[in-house]
């Protein structure tokens, strides 16, 4: 048990914080909704109803999609783009998908490489892009979920105000959908860009997200 915790400290800690903050979001979200209901002389809804409703899930998916887009785009961009001096970049000169030798593919695979790295053909091609594909699929699925749940929330609001409801294809062209989407994207891109450039000159001793404290500013990709 202790070994399990030690071996999985990062994923356990973030998983726990994720669940705690999700519960916090649910409690505060339900309270915010019921406060608005009270202001408009509407009926309050139960906590159980709120956490199973599109109101809650549209908000959850809206944030999920932007996080997964951020990582998907970052995984993709860092194949091709370099930031000199950044720990978040590859070394200059290694831009691109790199050789089979550098990536330990086919005959260059070692005995303990994942099997699909060595077998060649479609399995190696698929496995070579599996992280980007899975992160990208989660992004697309959560963005779709945001649009589907967001439309229900939008239509409920429209009905409350005796306004016409909209179809899904119409909803994805509304400013409501794009405002929910872009307000999340902009912050993700700023944070990623900051991480890329701040790690050139700033350090955190002991973190692999930083270069070693004594590493020169000009050194690119040297995890501490």
């Amino acid at each position: 048990m202790l070994r399990f915790v030690r071996d999985n400290g990062l994923s356990l800690a973030f998983g726990a914080v994720f669940l705690a903050t999700l519960v916090g979001q649910a409690i505060s979200g339900a309270d915010t909704f019921n406060h608005a209901q009270a202001l408009h002389n509407g009926d309050p809804i139960s906590f159980g109803h709120y956490v199973t409703s599109a109101l809650f899930w549209a908000d959850v998916m809206e944030n999920w999609q932007s996080e997964y887009l951020q990582f998907t785009l970052y995984i993709f961009a860092t194949i091709w783009l370099i930031q000199k001096g950044s720990n978040e970049s590859k070394k200059p000169g290694r831009a691109g998908r790199e050789s089979a030798e550098q990536q330990l593919l086919g005959e260059h695979a070692s005995p303990d490489s994942p099997r699909w790295a060595g077998v060649g053909g479609w399995r190696t091609a698929l496995y070579s892009n599996s992280l980007l594909m899975v992160m990208g699929a989660i992004w697309i699925a959560s963005w779709l979920a945001q649009s589907l749940a967001g439309r229900i929330v939008y239509n409920a609001d429209q009905l409350d105000h005796q306004a016409p409801t909209v179809s899904w294809p119409t909803y994805v062209t509304t400013s409501d959908f794009w405002n929910r989407t872009l307000q999340n994207w902009q912050s993700e891109f700023l944070a990623v860009g900051s991480m890329v450039i701040l790690s050139v000159y700033l350090r955190q001793r002991g973190s692999p997200e930083s270069k070693p404290v004594g590493a020169p500013h000009s050194e690119t990709a040297s995890s501490g």
Binding site: N8, S53, L148
Partner: peptide, 30 residues
Amino acid sequence: MRSVRLMFAIYLVLIVAGLAYAIALGILEH
């Protein structure tokens, strides 16, 4: 590595379950 594989599976199941629920909710709740 067995415990790491378990964490990997837990994360994937959690994510897929959340996505599946939200998509189903979005399609079914009109």
